[in-house]
């Protein structure tokens, strides 16, 4: 049964110390900034965060890192021109980093939500990122065993939810949202609009409500990329 939270703060209030939190977004597109800000105010620490990047500027995920609440981050591309908060934490040994090739990161999350115990991929075979991992030859090529990623929680930004939690996204802000919603014990989704159940064409729903636990509507101007530009 979907919970519709009255605020972003209420939506994240169940997140506990030491949780693994899957956080959607690619750069700032699809990053659930209002939920992340609420998590920072909530103050649960020692978090493991899974995100493609390691924060931009000093807002959202970067601010969460800056508040010292994250002890470990799993991502594909932490080093960006505006990732100075992460850079400082990493260089001073205050955060643990696991770098995962982006497609392997996505597939590990997908596997986590799909009940797949592991998969073999050619990605990273023969490179430093395969060191210590089991590998196996298929058709004369080396494949690396990768294990699933699950979260205690997922924070996701979608565009519209209906009253049951069926979701649609906007453009490239979809990115990790659908797979993270499926791979968490509890997925918390911020949207710019909640419409009546039945108002979304069933053919266009991207994330079915079975993967969604909590939805919160936040200021549409803040979530709609166009309005923010």
């Amino acid at each position: 049964m979907l919970k519709i939270a009255q605020s972003a703060d209420a939506a994240v209030s169940a997140i506990t110390e030491g949780s693994t939190v899957l956080i959607g977004g690619f750069g700032t597109a699809g990053q659930p900034i209002e939920l992340i800000d609420a998590l920072r105010r909530h103050g649960a620490g020692n978090l493991t965060v899974v995100n493609n990047n390691a924060g931009n500027g000093d807002v959202g995920l970067a601010a969460l890192l800056g508040a010292g609440l994250v002890s470990r981050i799993i991502c594909s591309f932490p080093r960006q021109v505006d990732s100075y908060i992460f850079d400082d934490l990493y260089r001073s040994g205050k955060i643990e980093l696991e770098v995962v090739p982006q497609g392997t990161l996505a597939e590990r999350i997908r596997a986590g939500g799909a009940g797949i115990a592991g998969f073999y991929t050619r990605t990273s075979a023969g490179t430093p990122l395969a060191i210590g991992k089991e590998s196996r030859m298929f058709d004369g090529k080396e494949y690396v065993l990768e294990l699933p990623i699950r979260g205690d929680f997922a924070l996701v930004k979608a565009h519209i939810s209906d009253g049951m939690g069926n979701l649609v996204y906007r453009k490239t802000a979809r990115n990790f949202g659908p797979i993270m919603a499926a791979a968490a014990n509890a997925s918390i989704v911020q949207v710019s609009e909640i419409v009546d159940t039945g108002a979304l064409d069933p053919e266009i729903i991207v994330t079915p409500c079975i993967y969604v636990d909590t939805v919160v509507q936040v200021d549409a101007d803040a979530t709609h990329g166009k309005a923010k530009a």
């Binding site: 690619f26 750069g27 700032t28 597109a29 597939e107 997908r110 797979i179 990329g225």
Partner: peptide, 29 residues
């Protein structure tokens, strides 16, 4: 410019007729 529509370098881009969007696991598949 639409901040929900960016490329891999996180630069705002446009869509052409026939564009399709999909999630990350599909993109890397």
């Amino acid at each position: 410019i639409d901040l929900d529509l960016i490329n891999a370098g996180k630069i705002p881009v446009t869509e052409l007729p026939g564009t399709a969007y999909f999630h990350h696991a599909d993109s890397f598949a």
